[in-house]
Amino acid sequence: MAGIAVLCEVQGGEIAKGSLGVLEEAARLGAALGEPVEAIVCGSGLDDAAMGALGGFGASKVRVADDAALASGIAQPVVDACASAQESGQYRYWLAGASIMAADAMAGLAARLGAGIVIDAVELHAEGGALVTRRSGLGDSVLAHCGFTTPVGVVVTRSNAFAATEGTGGSAPVERFSPSFKAYSQAVQLVGHEDAEDSGPDIGAAEVLVAGGRGLGDAAGFGPIEECAAAFGGAVAATRAVVDAGWYPYSAQVGQTGKTVTPKLYIACGISGAIQHKVGMQGSGTIVAINKDKNAPIFDYADFGIVGDVTTVVPKLTELIKARG
């Protein structure tokens, strides 16, 4: 086994930013281990020149599986493609940045290869000639130094763990390959898609975000949150739980599958503080949390925490801010 394969994802016709950051980190790791780094891209109607540009982010070769079965972003055909790439490439490590598709695909690949898998890695180190990840655990209170005992190791890195640069502008040779697909991998079909940006506010530019989670109780619970955000001259954000439940539009979602935000002030109301939410807001200037459970993980990364009920604390806060004009 030799070399590092990086699954680079195509989103909206372009390589995802997260993938570029992981590719660059893989290149640093590859240099330290003396292993070449290859980018694996799965999709349909992919352009050679655009794929070759991954060379500017550290890939020595770009291997492209271009097939209609890979058009919809469903993970299992991607498992087949990665397994085909592994047959010829015999990679020692597979890396991917966290996304719904990449995590599912790497899960399937690890199972098929009998490979150890590490999820949510935040650092990649070369130690004793091998990859040893740092994987945070117990609500980010400890970093486990986690390596592999299997011939192949599979890693999914945490969202936003590795920021991409602009790249060097270089390019790498592109090689196309044809995966063989399993029948069960094609038994999931995409039958519809609703785009995230179709409705709702743009939260990226707001200096203050007042965010609501399931602790608001129901969709009507967002009323006081909107008033509070208005008092601050800010906008409203939300967790996946309330977006999935239909209480608030997806365009307001913060986190791994939503937006990454860095307002001056982030006020989390009735939000437990799951890692997948944290990765979207931990770069905020000041973080305030209001939660009635004093053990809620959100308090571990807030600057100011209030153990209390959102229905009483938030309206009072709104009044006080309004009074200051």
Binding site: L143, H145, V307
Partner: peptide, 15 residues
């Protein structure tokens, strides 16, 4: 095992 960098001090009050 190692300790990750924390965010720093947190003030937590009961309402």
């Amino acid at each position: 095992l190692s300790k990750p960098e924390g965010r720093g001090d947190t003030i937590v009050i009961e309402d």
